[in-house]
Computed example of a mutant assay.
Amino acid sequence: MTRRATLLLAAAVMLLGAGAAFLLLRPEPSRGASSGLIQALQGNTDPRSQALARQRTRNPPPLPAVSALPALIRDTSWLVRLRAASSLAERTDISAGDRAELILDALGQEVTSPASGPPLAGSYLPLSGVFRLHYVHMIEDLGSAATGPARAALRNASGDLREWTSIALAASGDNDAAPGLRDLLRRSHHAEVRMSSAYFLGLLGDRSAAGDLKAALADPATARVRSDGSEPSHTLYPVREQAAGALQALGFTVERNGDTFTAN
Rank of each mutant, 00 (worst) to 15 (best):
G19F: 05
R48H: 08
F200K: 02
L82P: 01
L88M: 09
S208W: 01
T57H: 08
S30G: 12
R187N: 11
L184I: 10
S230Y: 08
L104P: 12
S172W: 03
S128A: 10
R162I: 02
I73P: 06
T112N: 10
S208E: 09
D46Q: 10
D75V: 04
R3W: 00
L203E: 14
A53M: 15
Q50R: 11
A71E: 15
T262A: 05
R4Q: 15
E110V: 07
T260R: 00
A20R: 13
F22M: 13
G19S: 08
L104M: 07
A152N: 12
G205T: 10
L127Q: 13
E28A: 13
L24P: 01
T45A: 14
N264Q: 07
D141Y: 10
E241Y: 00
T235E: 14
D105S: 14
L102K: 13
A244N: 00
A18L: 14
S188H: 09
A121T: 06
V13S: 12
G148I: 15
V80D: 12
P114M: 05
G148E: 15
V239P: 01
I167C: 02
R91C: 09
P114F: 02
L15P: 01
E241Q: 04
A21W: 07
L63N: 05
G43V: 09
G32C: 13
R74Q: 12
Q248A: 05
S233L: 03
D259V: 01
A209K: 07
P70R: 08
L203G: 05
S208L: 10
P118W: 04
F131C: 12
L142R: 05
G251K: 02
G229R: 09
L102E: 07
A153K: 14
S208T: 09
G148Y: 08
L120R: 05
A106D: 07
D259P: 00
L120K: 08
P149I: 10
P220F: 14
D46T: 06
A21Y: 03
S128E: 13
T57S: 14
D46G: 01
L181F: 03
H189E: 09
Q55N: 06
S123Y: 04
F131P: 02
E192H: 07
T6A: 08
A10N: 04
H190C: 03
A115M: 12
P220A: 15
E101A: 13
